[in-house]
Nucleic acid binder design. Sequence first.
DNA 1: AGATAACACGAGTAAACGCTCATCTCGCAG
DNA 2: CTGCGAGATGAGCGTTTACTCGTGTTATCT
Lengths: 188, 188
Amino acid sequence: MDLLLDTASELFAELGYEATTTNAIAERAEVSIGSLYRYFPDKQAILKALAARHLEQLRGLYARVFTDDVVYLPLPVLLDRLVDPFLELHLGRPDYAHILLGASVSADIAAAGSVAEDEIQERLTHLFLRVAPRLSKARARLVATVCKGTVKALIAMASEVNDRKHRAKIVAETKQMMLLYFQSVLRR
Amino acid sequence: MDLLLDTASELFAELGYEATTTNAIAERAEVSIGSLYRYFPDKQAILKALAARHLEQLRGLYARVFTDDVVYLPLPVLLDRLVDPFLELHLGRPDYAHILLGASVSADIAAAGSVAEDEIQERLTHLFLRVAPRLSKARARLVATVCKGTVKALIAMASEVNDRKHRAKIVAETKQMMLLYFQSVLRR
DNA sequence: AGATAACACGAGTAAACGCTCATCTCGCAG
DNA sequence: CTGCGAGATGAGCGTTTACTCGTGTTATCT
């Protein structure tokens, strides 16, 4: 079953959800279609299972990233803590983007995805409130929104670039922009 | 023919490219499928024509945005000039995202899209070099990359939010971040 | 060894979809 | 009024694809 999920993940990344046939998944996994349909009621179920697996990984990441001590880290280090793990996760799993795109197929998956995003947003908001207690809740939420969006953009930019050195430069530059922004938020 | 393109644009925005059937396009446009296929050799041709139309609009935008005088504008005004038109264009055309996604279907479209992005990148690089002549070419390109990515992220964020006031706040906050970044780039 | 249950198999099915083409419509010239 | 041609029409064709089911294979227990 995990084998099927891994194979589906590969094919979704290569061809996208729609263009991937269930027969192709079964064939590459060296399993008959009959067996595939013993474990998954239909094609969407595979997508849902993959989405669930990713969600689990994301939640695991939250637990590691949003620990209590990060509040006391210097700002640049805090940034690394917030950005690098998510970047690595997404660069290592090229199918994730396709799963999110495939989400428009099923309302369930889209809902789960946006719940995950809201969780990040909420955690970031709390983090900012602890780092900068003078911030209003509304402002902290706004900063969290922009932060989340910028990291998303960074992930997109980094995914498009294959050269490691160039990628590192883009990452560093974006972090620099975020650092300046955070500093100005704290100063007020 | 324009009627067909507009209808296709609507349906792609609602359902996505794959899920939209040619019959559905013809039906909603109140045209027979036979007639549709008189004007477009196949389904992809519709997508390509739409992509071409968007590209044309984008190029028109370049001409209006990247004029010679922008170099002498104050930074915050320059930012508005660079961000607002693109934001408006994308908010007003909800199918654009789907066209870009559908681009993975055809290498041609993907190529055209990345050419358009390279053009923006090039124009931004030149702009930054004129505004800040002390910048190295490599650095200007890097700044352009980050700028482009951030505007993309802003478009994505803004598209997800329906409340006008909330959207305006997100836009203002992101511009603030970019402003701080540009100031620090100029200062060095 | 034989019986039984659990699972794997893949040819086949029904539905959907992109696309074609024989037919029809209609405006116009002679 | 007739004949003609450009263009519109939609039933239907061929193909693809998600999914089923009758058969074959293996594992387990008595």
